[in-house]
Amino acid sequence: MLYLDKVNYIYQKGTAMEMPALHDVSIEIRDGEFIGVIGHTGSGKSTLIQHLNGLVKPTSGNIYYNGRDIWDEDFSRKELRTKVGLVFQYPEYQLFETTVEKDVEFGPTNMKLPKLEVQMRAFEALKTVGIGEDLYDVSPFDLSGGQKRRVAIAGILAMRPEVIVLDEPTAGLDPCGRDEILEAIARIRKERNITVVLVSHSMEDVARYVDRLIVMDHGMVKFDGPTKEVFQNYEELEKIGLAAPQVTYLTAALMKKGVPLPGIATTVEEAKEMLKAVTGAR
């Protein structure tokens, strides 16, 4: 549904601060996928996701949405942004309305939908992210960190996008708030069956949730494949300043010591099953 063809982006082209941010990036995002994007700060992943909904124009290369070039003269990027919902980092900093409900209605209102439809979508979105009706009339500034962030995600969800892109949705939250967000994302997947792109620093979260992993480094796609396969390259990942989940290192270390495991594990559950099998499950 989204296809990036040899996208290049140069920061501040033509000035002294010129700097390549993306280099020949070609990615295909298919319907219903759950994709993780990892890369250290400055690897180009934030620039990449801003290309997906036409907020940033590539210096060269093309981006297609359902077969149409999004930078064509007659293509409405405003409409594209309702189809490809982008949740920025610390999205709670964009809340501005007097009540939670009104804030979530901002997106659908901008789509010029009838009032009833706007309200319906807002209710629906708030339900998906697990915000109860008792909070609809509360000022968004009075909520807890995790709640604020879920309201902000609902604000994007209310536009009923076909793809939702989340930039580090769990950054700065405590384990509790983090689980709330991850559960909300899992519910979005289940209830809406939409494509999700998750940018994250947490290898543990990525390993647990996403099916496909894209690794960015120096503005280039370093790896792109099924999550487990990508983590096989944990030594390479280390070299570019990233890491794999702790259990991956653990299973690798055990294998080196001669423990007969079928391969590396990426989640605790997986490692547990492997080790249980080795011990003969006594």
């Binding site: 801003q50 909904n53 907020l55 405003k78 942004r81 309702t82 919902g85 982008l86 949740v87 920025f88 999205p91 900093y93 964009q94 901002f106 997106g107 901008n110 789509m111 604000g155 994007i156 536009m159």
Partner: peptide, 13 residues
């Protein structure tokens, strides 16, 4: 700049 982009992503014009 960031907030403007974020609101644009919510359909602001």
């Amino acid at each position: 700049d960031k907030i403007m982009k974020a609101q644009q992503a919510r359909g602001a014009d």
